[in-house]
């Protein structure tokens, strides 16, 4: 048995697929000042997963995925409801709903049925990246056969289609997302429905969070939704490049993070999240230093940027 093929390769592939799946919607969330929606969603899926498990009595991808998806969307609806009913700002409503749903999930985890199997809080928070084993490929050459990929670990089989679907959606609705994120009122006037687009983005984020949750846990989901996009935000002023950079940085963070974890023998998803946070800090510092040494660019007619960044609804 080749230990890299059996242990490291599946975990690494899962980490990369989860990173890409999360970075796609995350890039837009960060632009829209909604990074904490990812925080909320990644916590809110927990009760859905536990309820799906309690209902079916086994750990199966299908029902758990559906349960988590339902919980995420119910949670998003509850946030909107609480926000309106209690007249709260978005972040307070989010903080209220996601902590309550997560608390519900934690209590359900302690029920007798859930305690019997490998379903616990640590798992929910930081996943089981290391548990992914792929014994089928005996040698590198085996990977050339398409059929062997169908034997890949379950999280990978879930994450790859989700990442592809999200990429397709993003390309399809690229112009709609740009319009609705930049100027929702104008989107309405142009005959698009910004609320529908917001909902679709929430659903896409939930899908990514749910698919990644089982393998990497909620904390890494937040890191992957936010950190790559935050670095990309510092690199470019073009939407397409921003999304591309987000995916690129997500992959780099996953690879560096997983390798560090393998070297240090630490938790895979914890290390990747830590690398993500440190990478943002590094990017901010590098950008500051570069800005300091650059002389002011004088260009005709390019006045100072006087625009005030408005607080957009839906952000904290």
């Amino acid at each position: 048995m080749n230990p890299f093929l059996a242990i490291d390769l599946p975990a690494l592939l899962i980490a990369i697929a989860a990173s890409v799946a999360c970075a796609l919607p995350g890039s837009l969330l960060v632009l829209r000042g909604q990074a904490l929606l990812g925080d909320a969603l990644s916590h809110m899926v927990l009760p859905g997963i536990v309820v799906a498990f309690l209902a079916t009595g086994r750990i199966a991808s299908g029902p758990m995925l559906l349960g988590a998806l339902a919980a995420g969307l119910v949670g998003a609806g509850l946030i909107a409801l609480v926000r309106r009913a209690a007249k709260l700002e978005a972040s307070a409503a989010m903080g209220l709903v996601f902590t309550v749903l997560f608390a519900l999930g934690v209590v359900l985890l302690e029920t007798e049925a859930a305690r019997k199997v490998d379903l616990d809080l640590n798992h929910a928070l930081y996943g089981h990246l290391e548990a992914a084993l792929w014994l089928e490929p005996r040698a590198w050459s085996d990977l050339a056969a398409p059929s062997i990929w169908l034997t890949a670990p379950r999280p990978l089989l879930m994450l790859v289609p989700v990442a592809l679907a999200l990429a397709v959606l993003l390309v399809l609705a690229y112009k709609e997302l740009r319009l609705a994120s930049f100027d929702p009122d104008y989107a309405t006037l142009q005959g698009f429905r910004p609320r529908l687009i917001d909902f679709a983005l929430t659903a896409a984020t939930t899908l990514a969070a749910v698919a990644a949750f089982e393998a990497v846990g909620s904390i890494l989901v937040i890191a992957l939704l936010t950190c790559p996009a935050a670095i990309a935000r510092l690199c470019t002023d073009r939407l397409g490049a921003h999304i591309g950079f987000s995916v690129l940085f997500a992959t780099i963070i996953a690879v560096i993070g997983y390798n560090s974890a393998a070297q240090l023998e630490t938790s895979g998803s914890g290390t990747i999240a830590a690398v993500g946070g440190l990478a943002v800090a590094l990017a901010v510092i590098v950008r500051r230093l570069r800005l300091r040494v650059k002389p002011p660019v004088a260009s005709p007619g390019n006045g100072p940027n006087t625009a005030v960044r408005p607080l957009r609804p839906g952000s904290a």
Partner: peptide
């Protein structure tokens, strides 16, 4: 020190 918003 950056253009990142509060939530991010």
């Amino acid at each position: 020190n950056s253009r990142l918003s509060g939530p991010t």
